[in-house]
Design a protein around this nucleic acid. Sequence first.
DNA 1: AAGCCTTTTCAGAGGGTCCTCAGAAGTTGT
DNA 2: ACAACTTCTGAGGACCCTCTGAAAAGGCTT
Lengths: 247, 247
Amino acid sequence: MENQNTSPFLLRPDGTPVRVLVVDDEPDLTEVLSGALRYEGWEVRTAADGASALATARAFGPDAVVLDWMLPDSDGLTVLRGLRAELAGVCVLFLTARDAVEDRIAGITAGGDDYVTKPFSLEEVLARLRGLLRRAGMARGSDLHQADRLVVGDLVMDEQAREVTRGGVVIELSRTEFELLRFLMRNPRRVLSKAQILDRVWSYDFGGRAHVVELYISYLRKKIDAGRTPLIHTVRGVGYVLKPDVS
Amino acid sequence: MENQNTSPFLLRPDGTPVRVLVVDDEPDLTEVLSGALRYEGWEVRTAADGASALATARAFGPDAVVLDWMLPDSDGLTVLRGLRAELAGVCVLFLTARDAVEDRIAGITAGGDDYVTKPFSLEEVLARLRGLLRRAGMARGSDLHQADRLVVGDLVMDEQAREVTRGGVVIELSRTEFELLRFLMRNPRRVLSKAQILDRVWSYDFGGRAHVVELYISYLRKKIDAGRTPLIHTVRGVGYVLKPDVS
DNA sequence: AAGCCTTTTCAGAGGGTCCTCAGAAGTTGT
DNA sequence: ACAACTTCTGAGGACCCTCTGAAAAGGCTT
């Protein structure tokens, strides 16, 4: 019984860490993103515009690219074409404003790429990246190959189908509830502080208080622990922990 | 059976002691902190402001940094960026005032860094630092890699899950009870004076008397030793010692 | 055995954390 | 445009935790 996603870092088939290039012109954003990705075991480089993105990509040879759709010197589609020309099998995750041209991006995703809209949560980006890589057939031998099926006790989450069941009974969850539960299930038997949860599950620009975490924990409990032996436990003054009863 | 955390000092993979840089503008605080860290086997340097922190970091190459969020010449975020630029994989533990928590530390925990609020206890800082380093994958080959599982007799503590069991039975502990027990379990078979315990487990600004230690020992005994052969022993006029019965 | 000192235990006040409810504002789908 | 849902805020209140003070128990010395 050991922690799944901190110890055995993601590896490529040849044993080196998975590489990702983060391209965005907001330093705060690249800072947080690359920090979280490094923490998850990725090897990270950053770039602030299209030109340096292509140059870095050439030298770095990333497996995936996180790419802002709007860059100071060029648009996403141009950079995408450049990337495709350089790196055949690279996965691209686009970051877009909510009102941005969804049609054109929809066409992009047909090619196996994906996108998230700003503002996003880190969990969302990380999950999407894992999904991209998994579909690209990478990361065999790491924990990624079963990343679409999280299990804690009799609680099961199918990430791909976005379906959660406990004891075989399907549980309907809202978007935020689902992401909160996914974060908990990715860190079972580990106490997570409200600050940690906020930083990962809520958008980076969320201005509210940690109180929302309590509220959503309460929602989750009503749906998951209702009547049954609880999986979600409060650790007063510290945070919350998801674990099956027996230990 | 010998003491875990004083004798075999924490070592990096190359055999040298783990290095930590303490940055705070209150001399009393850096004094206490660096003293405790040295005692635990860390190699310590201190700095009183952001500029000298960066300079020292460059020369010293620490594995971890304890960093006051509010410094005379700059704020924590700026120093963090500088540190990240110089030292790729360094762990940062922030010290913040309680009301500054909500202020804007968002995103800090996402990159694996952590923070504690003033006033804090030494045990809290040390535990958090150990956690940071362990998660950063360092200190393999030292005692750190199993630092999340303390065992004394049939008493077992899982630091990650904050779960304590004796003879397989789960024992619920409050926050202070847990920290007191952790300190005892990190120093088994060693008599600890009430002053020592007070200095380590309670906040540095705690104004009360050593009487609280007696009280919390009493609480612990009720939960841990109740009915069974006692693990907590009183050494009259000296302090307390945690040890299995056989001796 | 008496007296003194240390330690343990009890009871309660006060403060803090957490849970829940109700409703406002925003979003989505029909 | 309307209904249903989702997200978040604020307030109230329950419960837990921490610490104080005092009394009881236990141990050591004389």
